[in-house]
Design a protein around this nucleic acid. Structure first.
Lengths: 140, 140
DNA sequence: TTGCTCCCTGGAGTGCACTCCAGGTCAAGC
DNA sequence: GCTTGACCTGGAGTGCACTCCAGGGAGCAA
């Protein structure tokens, strides 16, 4: 989270995917998540479906997996807790509850907007403090 | 952090302060921080100076304390870690290092701006998802 | 066949920022 | 004089989201 957010994934999320899928390491490189985090999300029930496995039991990811992981990243990076994402995923696994999902996303959206406004206000205060220091420093 | 941000402090930060100062409970009410958090910040060395004490040993806060706590809130709510705030406080306690403080604040500002942009981008993706669900739901 | 790299699992450990607790003091009100 | 409520201290506990580790397997290259 600290360096990850500054170092965007090396490979493009949408670069094409070999016929036998991507390994977890390749997915990590594309998404910016760590291998451990990918397995952790899966264990925590955040994946829509468990990824396929190679004959030797290794995870193999395909386009749909990548798209879903993209959604996880967008929810996490906007601050939705794992617990809530799990609920959203549970809803997404069954049909005919689109309105509930919508409700969750809209609630989340409002919280994010609120949070953004607050951070922006505090940032403005910091910028005033910066101006104050700049004044002092430039006069020295 | 979860409810605090939604429930702004009841009393105004700048309402006037009795001659013998404010108790920690009153400061908590004004700042939105918990009593425990105020003591924790003090223990962690985030206060510019320890607050005065009443004859019976209770903390008494005055305007300067409140202003400083306001700065702490603004740094924390924009995501500066305790560790970094401690460094900033240490600088603030001695003279003639305004340029270092300025540097810290400007670095922090850039990180916050970066983070804000990223959250906004992810939020935009969420809003597209919302539009998608709204379409589906409204057609049902 | 040895070594290397990447993967696997279950479970333990970490860092952060609080938050809670036990046991105690003090001032005010009844 | 007793209760109540707000405060005190040192230290333990919590919740969250990872992150790391031990012990092991598969596939490939030299």
């Amino acid at each position: 989270m600290s360096t990850t957010e500054l170092a965007p994934p090396a490979a493009d999320l949408d670069a094409d995917i070999p016929a036998d899928g991507l390994t977890i390491g390749q997915v990590a490189a594309r998404t910016g998540l760590s291998i451990d985090t990918l397995r952790y999300y899966e264990k925590e029930g955040l994946t829509l479906a468990s990824p396929e496995r190679s004959v030797s039991g290794q995870r193999r990811y395909f386009a749909a997996d990548l798209r879903w992981i993209g959604s996880l990243v967008m929810l996490r990076r906007t601050g939705m807790p794992i617990r809530d994402i799990r609920r959203f995923v549970a809803l997404s696994r069954v049909a005919d509850n689109e309105s509930e999902r919508l409700e969750m996303l809209e609630g989340h959206r409002l919280r994010v907007l609120h949070e953004l406004r607050e951070v922006q206000n505090h940032l403005a205060a910091i910028e005033r403090k910066i101006a104050f220091y700049r004044e002092k420093v430039d006069h020295a």
